[in-house]
Design a protein around this nucleic acid. Structure first.
Length: 887
RNA sequence: GCCCAGGUGGCGGAAUGGUAGACGCGCUGGCUUCAGGUGCCAGUGGCCGCAAGGCCGUGGAGGUUCGAGUCCUCUCCUGGGCACCA
C-alpha cells in the first residue's frame, strides 16, 4: 500500500487538470455562470500566508460551484503599478519594470503549487501596456462624458527633494528621505467626479444584501451625507467683491449662539487679505505647514488670526461677529467658512476660550436651570453662558433642582435627544436637535436667510500622481489649444524604458524626448502630461477586464453581460472603503460610457472579508532592555511555555500577533508546502477559525492537519483493497451518516462556514474509519468523503477518488446530494429535565405521541429520584428534542 | 468622543431559546514499537465522591421563560474602525 506523499501526488494531479484545461473559462450561455474573485495581489515578490488563505477560500467556492454545474470564472492577476517598484529602483538600482515582472514570475511560481483552480490564460498585470492602454481609453471616454476634470489641489511637497510625497512618505511632518519639513503646495490635478454619484453610492448600499454590514456602514460614514443650511453673512466694510461670506452649517439651530466666523486659510477672502498684508500671509503660510492627512491637521494646535473684519448676524443687524482665519477649517468641505457656536461645539469652545470670545448658550438639558454663579468673563452683547456642568443642589433653596453651568466642555447631546431651547428661534422650546435643525432650515428659508442643502463628506477623487511607475494620463498640453485629449489610435501611451532613478523627482519630467509630441488637435509641437494615475484606478476595473482580458477595447459587452457581476468577491477588510467605493464608482462610469451594462453598476453581488493569519511572537529581553525576537525554530514548547533551544531560557509568548518580518513570526507558504504539501496548508488555513476571523498558525496545528490528511489517504487505500462482505445494518448506518455529512458539509461551504465543514469532515472520517460496514458501502462513503474534501484538499481528493475507482476526475464530478429520506432516524434520544436540570435520557421511536413520551420520561429512575415524590405540575415535550418536567 | 465587533475549558473555537464545550490542539493512561516518532484505543470544564451520582459553571448584576451562552436592561473589560467634516 502506498503512503501519502503530497510531493508526489500534488504535481501529478495539477498536470492532469492542466492538460484537461479544466479551469479555462469559456462563455457558454447554456450554463449558469459563476464569477468568483479574490482581490488581486501586489507583486511584492513573495506570496504571504494571508494570500494562501484568501485564494483558498475563493478556490473552495470555485470548485464547489463547478461541481454544482456552474460555468465558473476564477481569474488571477497582479496590481502591479505603485511606489515600491520605484523605491526598489532607487535603493538598489535596476528598473521598476524588471523588478515588477520578475516578482510576478516568482509569485506565479509560488502560487501554482497550491493547486488553485484558476484560469491562468486570463492573467494580466496592470502594468501591461495592453491593460493600461485600455485604461487610458477609459480615461478619454470619462473625459468626454465629464466624469474627469482638472482643478487645483494641495499635495505634500518636499522642498529638498523637489518632489511630491504620498501621505505615507511623510513622517512627523518631514519627508522620509530628505528629512525636510513638508509643505502643502497647490498643483493643478485631475479629479474623478465621484461626488456627483455620492447619493447613488450611498443609497445603493441598501441593496447589497450579501455585503458585511460593517463594510456598508464604513462606506456610508465615509460618504457622510449631511443636511444643513447654507447662508451668507454680510461683511462690514468689505473689500471689493467680498461683501458676503457664504457659510454652511449642520447646526442652524445654534445660530443664536454664534460668536465668530471662521474661514479657511485657502478661502478666497483669506487669499485676498494675504496678498495685501504680510502678517496674514505669515499666518496662512504657517497654517499650511504640515502634512495633508486628516491626522496631521487634527493634531495641530488650533490657531486663529483676527482679520479685524466683522460680519452682521443675519437675525440682528446690530449684532456683529469677528472674522477669523482658522487653521482647522478645510476649504474642501462645505464653503470653507463656518460660524462658531462654542456652547455646543468643543472645537469652537476651545477656540473661543483661547481668543476670549463669548460663549452663548442655545439649549440646555431638559428641566435644567440657569447657572447660579456668573461665569468668569462677561461680554458686551447678550447674556453669556458657559460650559457644561450639571450641578445637583441638595441645599435648602431649591431641592432637587438641577443647575447647568459650562466650564471647559461644550454641551453636545445626541441630535435625537430632547433638550430645552433657551435661545431657539424656530419650533417648540422642547425638541430634539433633529427637529430644531429642520425647523431652523424652514424658518430661514421662509425669511430669506439661506437655504437647506444636502452635502456629502465624500470629496472628488484626485487621481494625478507625480511619479513614473503608473499609467500615463493620456492628455497633451498644447501652447495653442490648451489641454487636449490624446487620440485613441495613439494609445497606449507607453512609459519610456530609458529612465533612471538616481535623481529624485519624476523621471518623466526630465526625460529628453518622451514629453515631446504633436498636438492631437492642431498638429503643432506640444508636451505630454507627465503625471500618472493613482494605482487605485488600476484596481477599479480589473474585475471587468477579466471578462475579456485580451480585447482591444476595455471590455466586450457580450462577455461583460455574460460574466458580470462578480458573484463572490473575497478580500481583506483594509479595502472596505477606498477600493470598493472607487470600483463601485467606476462601474457606474463605465456604464455611462457604454463599457458595462447597467446591471453591473453594483459589480460585486456578494462580498466576504476574511481575517488575518496570525502567529505567536517569541520574545525575550535583550541588552538595553530592548526586546529580542526569536524565530519559531529557535524555541521549544513545553506545557504551554516556550524555552530557547539554545540554553533553555524561558521566553515570553505573545499569541495571535500579526505577522511581521521585524518580529520574526512570519510563516512562509513556500516552506510550508515543502514541509507538508499544499493540501495541508489549504486545510489548515480553513480550519479552526471562522473565515471572517483571524486564524493563528501553529506548527502543532499544521502537523495535525498533515496527519489527518495522511489518515484519510490510508483509510481510502485500505477500503480500496477491502473485500469485507456487506452487512445490512452496518451499511445502512454508515450511509445514513454519509448523507448527514453531505448535508452539513454542503451547508458549511455555501455559508462560508469552512471551519464547520472541516469539523464535520473530521467527524465523518472517524465514523468511516470505525464502521464495520461492508466494502461496497465503505467504498461509496469514502468516495463521498473524497468529494466533500475536494474543494479544500483537491489533490488528496483526486488521489483517493482514483484509488477508489471513481469515474473520471473528482474535480469534474457532480456534487453529492443528501438523500432526505436517509436523514431521518428511526428513534431519537431525548434528554429529560426536571425543573430545567437534565436528569435522564430516554430513547423513543421518532414518531411516538407526546403523551407516551411523557409516561416514559416520568418512569425513568433518575426522574423519579429527582422528583422525590413531588407531583409534576406541567410536562413540556418538544418533539424530538427535549422533555421538561415542572414540579 | 463616536461607531462596530467580541468576552465560553490549559489553547483555537462549536452550539435554529431545548443535553454548554462539536471539531482540532495540548495533556493523561493503555496497546503497538528495540527506542523515539507514527498508528490505534480510552479519558480530559471545576469541585465533592470508590461508585452511582451531586453541586457549580459561558466577563459581572438584574430580568423575561417550563427552559437563557443565545432574548431584554444596566455594567465592566478587550480588539478594531473613524474623527478638527462645520
Amino acid at each position: 500500500m502506498s503512503r501519502y506523499s503530497a510531493a508526489e501526488i500534488e504535481p501529478k494531479w495539477q498536470k492532469v487538470w492542466d492538460d484537461a484545461g479544466l479551469f479555462r473559462a469559456e462563455r457558454d450561455p447554456s450554463r449558469p455562470k459563476y464569477y468568483v474573485l479574490e482581490m488581486f495581489p501586489y507583486p511584492s515578490g513573495r506570496i504571504h500566508i494571508g494570500h494562501v488563505r484568501n485564494y483558498t477560500m475563493g478556490d473552495v467556492v470555485a470548485r464547489y460551484k463547478r461541481s454544482t454545474g456552474h460555468n465558473v470564472l476564477h481569474p488571477m492577476g497582479f496590481d502591479a503599478f505603485g511606489m515600491p517598484a520605484e523605491n526598489a529602483a532607487m535603493a538598489n538600482g535596476g528598473h521598476p519594470k524588471d523588478w515588477t515582472y520578475s516578482n510576478i514570475d516568482t509569485m506565479v511560481a509560488q502560487m501554482k503549487p497550491l493547486g488553485f483552480s484558476l484560469d491562468w490564460t486570463r492573467m494580466f498585470a496592470t502594468c501591461d501596456p495592453e491593460y493600461y492602454g485600455q485604461q487610458q481609453a477609459l480615461f478619454l471616454d470619462f473625459l468626454e462624458k465629464g466624469l474627469v476634470y482638472r482643478k487645483n489641489a494641495v499635495v505634500n511637497w518636499d522642498p529638498v527633494d523637489m518632489t511630491v510625497l504620498a501621505n505615507e512618505q511623510v513622517e512627523n511632518g518631514r519627508g522620509w528621505r530628505s528629512g525636510a519639513l513638508v509643505e502643502r503646495r497647490e498643483l493643478t490635478q485631475w479629479f474623478f467626479k465621484i461626488s456627483d454619484h455620492a447619493e447613488d453610492l450611498l443609497e445603493s448600499l441598501d441593496g447589497l444584501d450579501d455585503w458585511p454590514a460593517k463594510v456598508k456602514l464604513m462606506q456610508a460614514n465615509w460618504i457622510g451625507k449631511s443636511r444643513g443650511l447654507q447662508f451668507a453673512f454680510g461683511l462690514i466694510d468689505a473689500p471689493e467683491g467680498f461683501d458676503r461670506v457664504e457659510v454652511y452649517t449642520t447646526r442652524p439651530d445654534t445660530l443664536m449662539g454664534a460668536s465668530f466666523v471662521g474661514i479657511s486659510p485657502d478661502h478666497p477672502l483669506a487669499k485676498h487679505l494675504e496678498a495685501r498684508d504680510p502678517e496674514v500671509a505669515a499666518f496662512c503660510a504657517d497654517a499650511r505647514q504640515g502634512g495633508t492627512t486628516a491626522e496631521s491637521i487634527e493634531t495641530a494646535e488650533k490657531k486663529g488670526y483676527d482679520t479685524g473684519l466683522r460680519v452682521r448676524h443675519p437675525f440682528d443687524t446690530a449684532w456683529e461677529l469677528p472674522v477669523y482665519i482658522a487653521n482647522f477649517i478645510l476649504m474642501d468641505y462645505g464653503t470653507g467658512a463656518i460660524f462658531g457656536c462654542p456652547a455646543h461645539d468643543q472645537r469652537d469652545l476651545d477656540f473661543c476660550i483661547k481668543y476670549s470670545l463669548p460663549v452663548i448658550e442655545v439649549f440646555r438639558p431638559e428641566g435644567a436651570h440657569a447657572p447660579v454663579s456668573i461665569p468668569d468673563w462677561e461680554f458686551d452683547h447678550n447674556p453669556v453662558y458657559v460650559g457644561q456642568e450639571l450641578i445637583e443642589f441638595d441645599g435648602e433653596r431649591e431641592p432637587e433642582a438641577t443647575y447647568f453651568k459650562i466650564t471647559k466642555s461644550a454641551y453636545v447631546p445626541l441630535k435625537s435627544q430632547d433638550v430645552q431651547y433657551v435661545r431657539g428661534f424656530a419650533g417648540d422650546p422642547f425638541q430634539t436637535g433633529e427637529q430644531a435643525i429642520e425647523a431652523a432650515i424652514a424658518f430661514c428659508e421662509a425669511n430669506g436667510v439661506g437655504q437647506g442643502v444636502t452635502r456629502f463628506r465624500l470629496r472628488d477623487w484626485g487621481l494625478s500622481r507625480q511619479r513614473y511607475w503608473g499609467c500615463p494620463i493620456p492628455v497633451v498640453h498644447c501652447p495653442d489649444c490648451g489641454v487636449v485629449p490624446e487620440k485613441k489610435e495613439n494609445l497606449p501611451i507607453e512609459l519610456p524604458d530609458d529612465v533612471s532613478f538616481d535623481i529624485p523627482g519624476n523621471p518623466l519630467d526630465r526625460h529628453p524626448t518622451w514629453r515631446d509630441c504633436a498636438c492631437p488637435s492642431c498638429g503643432g509641437a506640444a508636451r505630454r502630461e507627465t503625471d500618472t494615475m493613482d494605482t487605485f484606478v488600476d484596481s477599479s476595473w480589473y474585475f471587468a477586464r477579466f471578462t475579456a482580458p485580451r480585447a482591444d477595447t476595455p471590455t466586450v459587452m457580450e462577455d461583460a453581460k455574460y460574466w458580470m457581476n462578480v458573484d463572490q468577491y473575497i478580500g481583506g477588510i483594509e479595502h472596505a472603503i477606498l477600493h470598493l467605493l472607487y470600483a463601485r464608482f467606476f462601474a457606474r462610469a463605465m456604464h455611462i460610457c457604454g463599457h458595462l451594462p447597467s446591471t453591473a453598476n453594483e459589480p460585486f453581488d456578494a462580498l466576504f472579508t476574511q481575517g488575518m493569519v496570525t502567529h505567536a511572537i517569541y520574545q525575550s529581553e535583550g541588552g538595553n532592555s530592548r526586546p529580542v525576537y526569536h524565530y519559531p525554530e529557535e524555541v521549544e514548547l513545553k506545557d504551554g511555555r516556550a524555552y530557547l533551544k539554545d540554553g533553555g531560557r524561558e521566553v515570553t509568548i505573545i499569541p495571535s500577533a500579526k505577522m511581521s518580518k521585524s518580529k520574526n513570526n512570519v510563516v512562509d507558504p513556500v516552506q510550508i508546502i515543502a514541509d507538508y504539501g499544499a493540501d495541508t496548508a489549504r486545510w489548515f488555513v480553513l480550519s479552526d477559525s471562522p473565515p471572517e476571523r483571524d486564524v493563528e498558525w501553529t506548527a502543532a496545528g499544521a502537523e495535525a492537519a498533515a496527519r489527518h490528511l495522511a489518515r484519510v489517504h490510508r483509510i481510502a487505500a485500505e477500503i480500496a483493497e477491502s473485500d469485507a462482505p456487506a452487512d445490512g445494518k452496518e451499511d445502512a448506518a454508515l450511509l445514513r451518516e454519509m448523507h448527514k455529512a453531505i448535508r452539513d458539509v454542503t451547508l458549511g461551504v455555501e455559508s462560508f462556514g469552512f471551519n464547520a465543514s472541516i469539523a464535520r469532515l473530521y467527524a465523518f472520517t472517524a465514523t468511516l474509519q470505525k464502521s464495520q460496514a461492508g466494502a461496497g458501502a465503505k467504498r461509496e462513503a469514502a468516495k463521498v468523503l473524497a468529494q466533500l474534501m475536494s474543494p479544500m484538499t483537491p489533490h488528496l481528493a483526486e488521489e483517493c477518488w482514483h484509488l477508489l475507482g471513481g469515474e473520471g476526475l473528482v474535480a469534474s464530478a457532480p456534487w453529492p446530494q443528501a438523500d432526505e429520506a436517509m436523514l431521518v432516524e428511526d428513534s431519537v434520544t431525548m434528554p429529560v429535565q426536571v425543573n430545567g436540570k437534565r436528569r435522564a435520557e430516554i430513547t423513543v421511536p421518532r414518531d411516538m405521541p407526546a403523551d407516551e413520551v411523557e409516561k416514559l420520561a416520568l418512569a425513568a429512575d433518575n426522574v423519579i429520584r429527582a422528583l422525590d415524590g413531588a407531583q409534576p405540575r406541567k410536562i413540556i415535550v418538544v418533539p424530538g428534542r427535549i422533555v421538561n418536567v415542572v414540579a
